[in-house]
Each structure stands twice: as structure tokens, then as C-alpha cells.
Design a protein around this nucleic acid. Structure first.
Lengths: 203, 203, 203, 203
DNA sequence: TATGAATGAGACTTCATTCAT
DNA sequence: AATGAATGAAGTCTCATTCAT
């Protein structure tokens, strides 16, 4: 018999999947209840509102992200490797864990004013994290001096765009992105952020 | 007395602004009617449904984009300059023409299944265009060989991410992005896509 | 074709009748809509919520009451006659204008916290009015000195109790109350509030 | 370990308090369960429905009332003293025993059609009792001839109105009513019901 | 061309009640 | 005896759309 926790997680997973695929407003509680094999009423034992479900999903996603980046830091990888790892990991997760890779898909959902703050905060928190990472890399001269704010949002945009494309389609391009994006982006990022070679011999 | 066309455009502009800001589902026809100083009934003289308004907006946006890129081609700029122009122009439009810069904001709106196809097509059409452009650049040896599909989506993601951030907020970061993103991204793209220097003296 | 105002009044009257009879919480919008021969949705053109309907009813009732007492004052009746008139008129209205005699039936309805304030205020306003009237009577020596606060609430209670009994039943007692309460209460009030006769010749 | 009976009484007391304060429909079983420190399920061991709880409360209140009036009769007080005692005692109980003074507050609660009969019966039973008492007083020439039905409902209304005002508020007026109502009403009732002095000398 | 009252389907949510444990 | 997860009916409310004027 499912424990409280299991049912809650079930609802969250199911909702994450449907929200990601169809959007928040296009997903009725009927659909969530049906997929979770529960009555609509039951959902309200576990979440106090539909908004609350989305918030729980986002909190879980954010926690996962934080664990992941904390782990990267602990391993004391060079900054460029950390960024690479973040990009590659997010892209690889899409499709493998559809219900748990929603952070980039949900963050931009249409939202009530109440939710907006929370959703935006998740995205902003990731941006702040990347910014700090970039600045550290610049200080340590591991990457070239660049505008960390601009580059942070650019990197998030890349992840989001490619993740979304993979998530929502299943065609030839999906395959290309899934298989080739990690290598291409690794190379792109390395060129993008590489320290400029010293001019050997100024004119 | 406004002509049919003017009223139609008015509705479109008003709707583009509100859809962008609040989302498609969070925007009722009442709100559009109020902002356009029209009755709800009148809107149905110009558009056959709410979905239809969104479609019209997207078609207009796509046309604008096509004109813009056609112009770039006509001027026979080098590929890297064309890409640069596309990125910079989109970012500069945000905030200046809120009601006409919606393409990147609307493309990711939650949508009914019916609309989904159309919205995605716009995004895909832009991706296809960038892909072709990149391949041309590679052929002409103006940019380094890269996976044009991956890079195309990456560039769209960058534009989208930064545009969105500028559009929805008005804080210090907004300022940074607005003023510094064009230069930073120009530089980033140039490094990213630059032809690898010939190894001076192969081993 | 009914004007906006007529429909609004229709809803109000219908709702007043049902609320009075069955209570606020036991009355669904379905019932109001059905009795008003309208769709549920339509009701929301005229009232922004179910609470709002109740508020509108109370405001109308209070206005009626105020007109009535203002008229009494204008006619410069002695205080005891005014009180008598108030009591008798309220009792006579019950049954004649079921949809417009709701003030004493609605004031004590179960209510949301939001409504509570408004509902209570109506009742309190009537109490305050009676208090002032009693004090005036005492000053003018038209009625005996008494605690105007206590007596004001007592009079309201009498009206409420008898009105309610008439409203909700239709039996022998209803008839007795309807026909005999005015005379009995007139006499009762006169004894209750009469100036004590001077002891002619104290033993 | 609480005995069945103690738990049952606990539920009843808690429910009486909340029903009185917030109303029947505004009180969920969750609230009762929480206040009684019980699970919702448990409540259904002691009462077969929410309605049943209210009925039990009313039956208890009615029993208390009957005991009280039986005691008055046993003491063979004059009728006017009995009425006085009833009025004063009810008013004094409010605030002292919030959970057991509910009869006048509950009697007018909104109720399902099923409950209506029962609730009304309690009120009617009190009215019948007062009527009989008044008629006895008239027969015994202890009080003036009056319409016992009308006066019975009037007295109930007075008690109800003042009790309610005390129960739901806590302001200056609450204090006035609590402290001065017993004396004022005692005096009022005595004047109201006093035997008319014999005309000394006809004509 | 323009209006806005009217509609009805469907949204989210609450809650008394049941029942397996 | 006690629990609380699960249910499903009913509640209030929103909104795109229609249509008589």
C-alpha cells in the first residue's frame, strides 16, 4: 500500500511530466488525477493547490541542481569543466528522466502572479550561480575575461533551447541534438571562453 | 473612424503586449478589449477566435523576421556579421518595441494542441534559417566547421534567454544586459565561430 | 427585453427570497440561476460573487429602512409612536413582501469572515438608531428613563423573533402572530416605556 | 484513556463552541477533530454524521433548559419571577459557559432541510413552554391579560438578541449588556406584564 | 460595424463520509 | 477503538464564444 510519501512523489512526477509537455494551464487536475490513478480530491491531501504542486516540483528540481553543482565544486574541477559538465548533464537528462528534467521547461511556464516570483527565483538562482562560477574562472585566469552576467544568461539559454527541442520532438533533429550537442557545445564553450593566446609578437 | 485594418492592428498590438507580459491563458479577452478600447463582440469581427489573434501576431512577427534576414542577405554581409546582426537586433528591439518583439516571448507560450504546431513552426523556421546560414559560412570558410544544427538552436536560446530577462524585469541586471549584451555576444560569437588559426608549423 | 437594471433586481429579489428561506450556504447559485431563469454565468455579469449578492440585498434593505425611519422623523411623531410604527411595519411587511423583508432574516445568517463585518454593521446601525430614538424620548420625557442600549436590542429581538416565526411557518400561530402581534406589541411597548405615574399620595 | 462518554462530550462541547462562533457550514469536521484532538475517523465512532452532532448538542441544551424550568416550577415561584429568572439566567450564561449556552445561537443556524425540523422544534418547544407559563400567570392574575403567543415569542427574541450580541462581540456595548441587561429587563418585564391598577373610581 | 448580455463547459477547490488497516 | 487516505459530489467562479439588437 503506498505510503504518504510515495503517493506524493507519484503525483509530483506525473504532474511534472504533463506540465512539461502540455503546459500548466492546459493541464487540468483531471489529467493529473487520471495519470496518478487517484481521485481529484485525493490530490488535495498532498498538495494544497495546483500551484503548490508546481512549486513542489520546482523545489525538488532546484534541490537536484544544487546537489549537482555542489558535487562539481567538491571535485575541484576547473571552471570550464564545471560549466561543460552542467550543460552536458542537463542535456543528457532530457529524455532519460522526463519527469525530473523539468526545471528548464517549467521555469518559463505561464504562471499566476503568485507563482511568478517563485518560478523566476529558481531561474535567477541558477543564473547567479553561473555568474559566480564565471567570475571565479576569470579571477583564476582559467577563462577569458568576459561579462559574466551576459554569458551566464547565454549559457542558460543554450541549455533551455536545446533541452526543449529534444523534449518536445522526436525526429531527426532530436537525434542530432541528443547525440552531437554535448560534443559540439563542449568545443564551442572551450573556444568561447578560452584565454586569448598572448600575441606572440605584436606587429 | 478607424479603418478595419487599423482596428485589427490595434488589437494585435495590444494582445501581443499583454500575451507577452502575462501569458496567453492569463489574458482574457476582456483585458484585450479593455486595452484596445473595444467591446468583446467587436474583437470577433476581426478575429475568429483568441487562438486566431495569437496566430496573426506570430505571422506578423515571422514576416518581420523574414524581411529582416532577407535584407541582411541582400547586403551580402559575411555570415558572421549576419548572425551578429540578428542577435544584436533582437536584443535591441526588446523594450523599444514591446508589442512587436514578441516572437521569442510568444514562441514558448503555453498553447492548445491546435496552436502548438503553428507556434513551433515559427521557431523551427528560424532554426532552419540559422542552420542554412551557418552551413553557408562553413562552406565559404568564413566560420569554423561546426554542427550547424546544434549551434543554430544554441544561438536562438541565447537570444531568447536574454530577451526574456530584459523584457520581464527592470533591475540592475536588465541594464547590464541591455547595454552590454550586444558587445559581449558579438565578441563571444566571433571567438566561438572563428576559423581555427592554422597551426603555424605542423609537428 | 430586460434592461441591465431589471435583471439585476430580479437576481437580487430571487436571491433574497431563497437566502431567507433556506439560508445562504444552503442556496447554490444553481438555485438562484434557475429561479431567475438565467444561466449561472450570467449572474456573474451582475454580481462579482455570491457574497456580493448578499451585500447588495442588505444594502437595499438598509436603504429602505433608513427611508422609512427618516420619514417617521420628518412627521415629528412622538417617540413612542415612532417605535411602535417601526415594530408594526416590519411585522406587517413579512409575508407581503417576502423578497424585501429580509433584513431581519439575513442579518443573522452564517457568513464568511468577510461578510460578517458588513452584516453585523447593518444590525448595529439599526440598534444605534433605536438607541438614539430612545434617548431622545427619555430627554423629552415622552418615555420612562431606561437603559436605551438594552431596550434597543430587546426591541430588535422582538421584531426578529416574530418576523422569523411568521416567515418560516404557515400554521395557526402564524395567523395569530400576524393578526394580533401589532396590537399586542403596541400595548406592550406602551406599558413598557410609559412614564411612571406620579404617586398621588404616597402612603 | 477517555471513556466513550467523555470523548463524546468533548466532541459535543468543542463542536458547540465552534458552531456557535463560526456557524454550522463554516465549520468543517477537520476543525472539530483538530480542536478535540481526535482524528476525523474517530468522530464517526461517536456520531453518525455532522448533522447528528448538532442534534446531540441541541438535545443536551434542551434537556438543560427543561431541567432549569422544571426546577423553577418546583420552587413554586410566581410566574413573573419565573420569567424573570429565565431571561436573566440565559443572559448570564453567555460568556461564562460558551460551549453550553448555544441554544439561542444554534437554533437559528442555517440547516439542511432534514435538520430544520429538529432545530425548529427546540425553539417551538421553548415558545410553547413560555406560552403556558404566561397563561398560568394570567389565570392566576399574577400578570396582566395579554396575548400569550405574541409575548412568548417576544421574550424569546429579547433573550436571543441580547445573548447573540454579547456572544459575538467584545466591546463597550457587550459590557453594558452583560451588566445592565438583567436589571433593565427585570424592570421592563415587570412593567410590561404588571396587572393594571384598578380604576379607583370608574368613569 | 458595433455592442455586451447571455451562455455553458470546465476550471479549481472543499468537504462529509467511507473503509482498509 | 482509532486512524487518515481516499473518494466523489457539489460548490463557486472564469472565460471564450454567440447572437439579438
Amino acid at each position: 500500500m503506498p505510503l504518504r510519501t510515495e503517493t506524493r512523489e507519484k503525483i509530483q512526477s506525473v504532474a511534472a511530466e504533463i506540465f512539461s509537455k502540455r503546459g500548466f494551464h492546459n493541464t487540468g487536475l483531471r489529467a493529473i488525477a487520471a495519470d496518478a490513478r487517484l481521485s481529484i480530491g485525493s490530490i488535495y491531501h498532498y498538495f494544497k493547490s495546483k500551484d503548490d504542486i508546481l512549486l513542489a516540483i520546482l523545489r525538488r528540481e532546484l534541490a537536484t541542481w544544487k546537489e549537482f553543482v555542489a558535487d562539481l565544486e567538491r571535485r575541484e574541477l576547473p571552471v570550464s569543466k564545471q560549466i561543460e559538465a552542467i550543460v552536458v548533464q542537463q542535456i543528457n537528462r532530457i529524455g532519460k528522466e522526463r519527469d525530473r528534467s523539468a526545471i528548464f521547461l517549467l521555469g518559463r511556464l505561464e504562471h499566476s502572479a503568485t507563482l511568478k516570483t517563485n518560478l523566476v527565483e529558481v531561474y535567477e538562482e541558477m543564473a547567479r550561480y553561473l555568474e559566480r562560477l564565471l567570475r571565479t574562472g576569470i579571477e583564476r585566469k582559467e577563462i577569458r575575461p568576459c561579462n559574466s552576467t551576459v554569458v551566464a544568461y547565454a549559457i542558460l539559454g543554450i541549455i533551455e533551447s536545446i533541452s526543449t527541442r529534444i523534449f518536445f520532438h522526436n525526429d531527426k533533429i532530436t537525434g542530432i541534438l541528443r547525440h552531437e550537442a554535448p560534443a559540439e557545445l563542449t568545443q564551442s564553450l572551450s573556444k568561447w571562453l578560452a584565454i586569448d593566446p598572448l600575441p606572440v609578437n605584436g606587429r
